[in-house]
């Protein structure tokens, strides 16, 4: 079946910059997109190329497909967890990387085992096939003016889109500082890649753990707050992590007047804007599916409960 085509898609407010970037990417890769600023969504057949343990709870799943996939940091896919009715629904995962490898596309996901779906994914064997609906949603705005820098903030398993952004920014030589936090040292993921990407642009790599077993003791937003208090500023700060972290982040950004974007995680059944399970309330009163208008939102667009 032909999965391309004209679809109706909402345009994102005030994100022409990102849209131009997406179009350029799509053009370069000769990928069909729908003329509304979004590369057409497809249900890709993917197979498990590798599964690597990263921590006591987290693992990396590398999927390959002969289908082309182009995605930007912050976008996500809906992945099946095997055949059968239990678990019933796909799971939403932001990409940690999407790249061409020869005539294949390789997609990296960093996952935390939290239930039946992720438990099943953790036990997949090499070569098993799954379906991945992708690319979905809108990613981070990565463009900055000459001489400006970005701050990237990740908490726990919120790392994937932030790592993706860091590695893309490193390739583009866009300077950034990276803040990575977790409950304890063992749950700090992909440290070498984070360090390498940050070093490539001469950025500061800040670590924090709740128990102080690595880096600064306390939550990562406290580490960010200390830098802000000493006068550091960025053109924009991008974050992904658990909701308490994102709220603290949004509050900091609001108080210090920094443009902020955050990737939200809401329970999601379809990822395509029809189930209306993953809705988020915006400052203008609208209630929108985060799979369509997010999952990355400028903090200023979100309802006040996110930063008040």
């Amino acid at each position: 079946m032909d999965l391309r085509p004209e679809q109706k898609l909402k345009r994102r407010h005030g994100r022409a910059d990102n849209r131009a970037g997406r179009e350029a990417v799509a053009k370069a890769a000769q990928v069909t997109h729908n003329g509304a600023g979004m590369i057409a969504r497809r249900d890709l057949r993917v197979s498990v190329a590798a599964r690597d343990e990263l921590s006591p709870t987290c693992f990396r799943l590398t999927l390959t497909s002969t289908d082309t996939l182009v995605a930007e940091p912050g976008q996500f896919g809906m992945l099946t967890c095997g055949d059968g009715f239990d678990p019933l629904l796909r799971r939403a995962f932001s990409f940690a990387s999407v790249a061409r490898r020869g005539n294949q596309t390789a997609v990296e996901l960093l996952l935390k085992e939290v239930g039946r779906g992720t438990g099943r994914l953790r036990r997949l064997g090499s070569g098993e096939t799954l379906r991945l609906l992708a690319p979905l949603g809108h990613g981070f705005a990565l463009d900055v003016a000459e001489g400006e820098r970005l701050a990237l903030i990740a908490g726990g398993i919120g790392l994937p889109p932030v790592l993706f952004a860091a590695e893309v920014l490193a390739t583009r030589k866009t300077p950034f500082d990276l803040y990575l936090g977790a409950a304890r040292a063992a749950e700090l993921l992909e440290l070498e890649r984070c360090a390498a990407a940050t070093a490539a642009v001469g950025g500061e790599f800040v670590l924090a753990t709740d128990d102080g077993s690595r880096g600064e003791r306390g939550v990562i937003t406290a580490a960010l707050a200390r830098r802000l208090a000493s006068g550091r500023r960025w053109a924009r700060a991008l974050a992904c992590g658990p909701n308490p972290m994102l709220k603290a982040f949004a509050r900091l950004a609001h108080e210090s007047g920094i443009e902020a974007e955050m990737s939200l995680e809401e329970p999601m059944a379809c990822g395509l804007g029809v189930c209306l399970g993953c809705v988020v309330e915006l400052a203008d009163g609208r209630v929108v599916p985060s799979c369509q208008e997010g999952p990355v939102f400028p903090a200023s667009r979100l309802a006040a409960r996110w930063w008040a």
Partner: peptide, 8 residues
């Protein structure tokens, strides 16, 4: 929200 939850 939450508005949806998966069950068996």
């Amino acid at each position: 929200t939450p508005r949806i939850v998966e069950t068996a």
